[in-house]
């Protein structure tokens, strides 16, 4: 069951990821990215990260991507122009990419010791209570600094997006 679920959601993630790169219209890409995020949220659940799965849905899929879709709709962005790929990129690109995939996969398989397979429910440390406790004890300073970062981002967005007044 765990393997089957992993296969299903991994397939969804990869197909949506490929779709993101291939589609020419930004709104198709945006929805593919939402698909990737949904599939990843399910995988986080399999890995025992309840809180992160929920945060993925709330923050990424529910807020950040809605903002992207909103901007795409606001600017009424059209399809992208076909781009001219240089000949060596055309013939060398795909093999190089496959090689890159292969290398990364090989390194991961090689370096990681034979650990026990991922079973749903084997790791219970990802509950909201645990995450909250860590955030407000061990990671208190980073957490507070992040809030300053967000404040700065809000101010920056307002300054950038407001109309010129003078």
């Amino acid at each position: 069951m765990d393997a089957l679920l992993f296969m299903i959601f991994a397939a969804i993630a990869v197909i949506c990821g490929i779709n993101l790169v291939v589609q020419t219209h930004p709104i198709s890409s945006a929805l593919s990215l939402v698909g990737v995020m949904g599939a990843l949220a399910a995988l986080y659940l399999l890995l025992g990260g309840e809180f992160i799965a929920a945060a993925q849905l709330v923050v990424y899929a529910g807020a950040i991507m809605v903002l992207f879709v909103f901007v795409i709709m606001l600017l009424n962005a059209g399809t992208e122009k076909k781009l001219a790929i240089r000949p060596w990129g055309k013939y060398l690109g795909a093999p190089l990419l496959l090689l890159f995939f292969g290398m990364m996969a090989y390194v991961v398989q090689r370096i990681l010791p034979e650990s026990s397979p991922v079973v749903f429910g084997a790791f219970q440390g990802g509950t909201a209570a645990e995450i909250g406790r860590s955030l407000f004890t061990v990671y208190l300073l980073p957490f507070e600094v992040t809030s300053v970062l967000i404040l700065i981002a809000i101010l920056g967005a307002i300054v950038l997006a407001r109309k010129e007044v003078d």
Partner: peptide
């Protein structure tokens, strides 16, 4: 059940994409 390395491989594929 699949080993964690499969998850890491998926992560690598997505990163490359």
């Amino acid at each position: 059940a699949v080993p964690p390395s499969w998850y890491l491989t998926l992560s690598a594929i997505l990163f490359a994409l």
